[in-house]
Lab assay of single mutants.
Amino acid sequence: MEVRTIKVFTTVDNINLHTQVVDMSMTYGQQFGPTYLDGADVTKIKPHNSHEGKTFYVLPNDDTLRVEAFEYYHTTDPSFLGRYMSALNHTKKWKYPQVNGLTSIKWADNNCYLATALLTLQQIELKFNPPALQDAYYRARAGEAANFCALILAYCNKTVGELGDVRETMSYLFQHANLDSCKRVLNVVCKTCGQQQTTLKGVEAVMYMGTLSYEQFKKGVQIPCTCGKQATKYLVQQESPFVMMSAPPAQYELKHGTFTCASEYTGNYQCGHYKHITSKETLYCIDGALLTKSSEYKGPITDVFYKENSYTTTIK
Rank of each mutant, 00 (worst) to 15 (best):
A289S: 11
V304D: 00
N61S: 12
T5Q: 13
I6K: 10
H48Y: 15
T55I: 08
T43C: 14
S25W: 14
A115E: 02
I15M: 11
A250Y: 14
P131I: 04
K307P: 15
S181D: 14
S310G: 06
C271E: 15
L283E: 02
Y73K: 03
V21W: 15
L153E: 01
Q251M: 14
K158W: 04
Y113F: 15
C156Q: 06
V22C: 15
T116G: 06
V236G: 04
A108V: 09
A250C: 10
K127D: 14
T292H: 11
Y311R: 07
S104C: 09
F259R: 00
F305Y: 04
E264Y: 04
K280V: 07
V221M: 12
R139A: 13
N157R: 11
D77V: 05
L291A: 11
P248E: 09
E281W: 00
L114R: 00
L88I: 07
A142L: 11
Y84M: 06
C225F: 00
R167S: 04
W107H: 03
K183Q: 07
E162C: 05
Q230K: 14
Q237H: 13
G220K: 03
S50M: 13
A108L: 04
T91C: 09
K95P: 05
P97R: 06
K201Q: 11
F305D: 03
D303T: 01
A87V: 06
E52V: 14
G228W: 01
D180M: 12
T302L: 00
I315S: 14
D13G: 06
G53H: 15
L17Q: 15
K307A: 13
Q237N: 10
S181K: 08
C193N: 02
A136E: 14
P130N: 06
M24T: 14
L59C: 15
Y208K: 03
T76V: 13
S181Q: 15
T211N: 13
T192M: 13
F174I: 04
A108K: 08
T103R: 06
M209Y: 14
Y28E: 01
T169E: 00
L119Y: 04
S171F: 09
K307D: 12
S295I: 15
V203I: 14
T43A: 13
K293F: 09
G53P: 05
C225W: 01
E308G: 07
L153T: 04
K92I: 11
Y269N: 11
C156W: 02
G143E: 03
L179V: 05
Y234D: 01
P248K: 14
T302D: 00
K93I: 07
E71Y: 10
H276M: 07
P241A: 09
Q123S: 06
E162Q: 10
S240C: 01
S294V: 15
L151A: 03
D63P: 11
R4E: 15
Y72N: 14
G82K: 07
T226S: 12
F32C: 10
L118K: 03
L126K: 04
F128L: 05
Y252H: 10
T64D: 06
T199E: 11
S171Q: 11
G161Q: 03
R83T: 06
Q20T: 14
Y138K: 15
S171N: 15
R139G: 08
M207D: 01
E68V: 07
Q195G: 10
N100H: 12
T103Y: 11
Q270T: 09
L212A: 04
F70T: 09
E264L: 06
D180A: 12
S86R: 13
M245N: 00
T64K: 14
I45G: 13
T266E: 15
A87F: 05
D63E: 15
C156Y: 04
V206C: 10
N157E: 13
M26L: 10
V67Q: 14
L102H: 06
T312N: 09
S295P: 10
K127M: 14
F9N: 14
Q237C: 10
P249N: 00
Y265S: 01
C271V: 09
T192K: 08
A40G: 14
S86N: 11
K316E: 09
G228M: 03
Y72M: 15
L17T: 08
L290G: 11
Y252D: 00
V243A: 01
E125I: 05
C227F: 00
P130L: 02
D13H: 04
A177L: 03
T313H: 15
D287G: 00
I45C: 15
E296N: 09
K191D: 09
L59I: 09
L133M: 08
N129M: 08
L114M: 09
T302Q: 00
N129S: 09
D23M: 13
G29F: 12
M244C: 06
H273T: 00
K54E: 13
K7M: 09
H51Y: 06
I105P: 00
G161E: 04
V166Q: 04
K219Y: 07
D38H: 10
I301D: 00
K229G: 15
P47W: 04
L153P: 01
V42N: 10
E162M: 09
L290P: 00
Y155R: 02
T192H: 13
G299V: 03
V221W: 07
I301E: 00
T10Y: 15
N268R: 07
F56H: 05
Y234M: 11
F259P: 00
L186K: 01
Y269E: 11
T103I: 10
K93T: 15
V58A: 07
C112V: 03
T211Y: 05
Y234K: 10
N147P: 11
L186I: 09
K191C: 10
C193Y: 02
Y73D: 05
F259V: 01
C227S: 00
I105T: 03
H276N: 04
T278Y: 13
N187Q: 12
V304T: 02
K233L: 14
I6D: 04
C193D: 01
P131A: 05
D303E: 00
L179N: 01
H256V: 14
V42S: 10
L290F: 11
T302I: 00
A247H: 06
T169N: 02
Y72H: 14
D13N: 04
E253P: 06
T266P: 00
A177W: 02
T103V: 08
H176F: 13
F56Q: 05
Y297C: 03
Q175H: 08
S181M: 15
D287I: 00
